[in-house]
């Protein structure tokens, strides 16, 4: 599926929830079931420091696609991280660079997660794009 299609799917899924409790329970569930980053990758150089919580992000470039793994010490952030990975993981560097991440806005999650809290998440998206840029250069070389 393309990045666009995955985002559409997430937006449709989120629309099904009528009250905030269900929505957050779903995100918490996603957080709990996220296949987390390997312990040896949970290092400072992979850490994205937020004011309230931290995110760890690692990337692997194989067969022209970037696979991401991540973790967070906070559960709701971890759930949101899981959604971000769903969108970006196993896509080509070019598609990642070109992608417009709008599902956070469209699902109303940005409204629930004020700037100060989602900062870590926004930094994570930035980091994902950096990885994609680095791999796209690597891709042209090989």
């Amino acid at each position: 599926m393309s990045i666009e299609e995955i985002q559409e799917q997430i937006i449709d899924e989120m629309d099904l929830f009528e009250d905030w409790t269900d929505k957050y329970e779903y995100i918490i569930e996603l957080g709990k079931s996220l296949k987390t980053i390997a312990e040896d990758k949970k290092i400072d150089s992979n850490k994205i420091k937020g004011c309230q919580s931290n995110v760890w992000l690692d990337a692997n470039f194989t067969d022209g696609k970037v696979a991401f793994t991540a973790d967070s010490d906070a559960l709701i952030v971890k759930g949101l991280v899981s959604l971000v990975l769903k969108v970006f993981s196993n896509q080509t560097p070019q598609d990642i660079i070109n992608a417009n991440l709008d599902f956070i806005e469209k699902t109303g999650l940005s409204q629930h997660l004020a700037q100060t809290r989602s900062n870590g998440l926004l930094s994570m998206v930035k980091q994902i794009k950096f990885y994609a840029m680095a791999y796209s250069v690597q891709g042209t070389k090989s």
């Binding site: 957050y24 919580s53 559960l75 952030v77 629930h112 997660l113 809290r117």
Partner: peptide
Amino acid sequence: HHQDLAIILDQ
């Protein structure tokens, strides 16, 4: 985690 708690309380 305290952040999770704050988000759910804010709701």
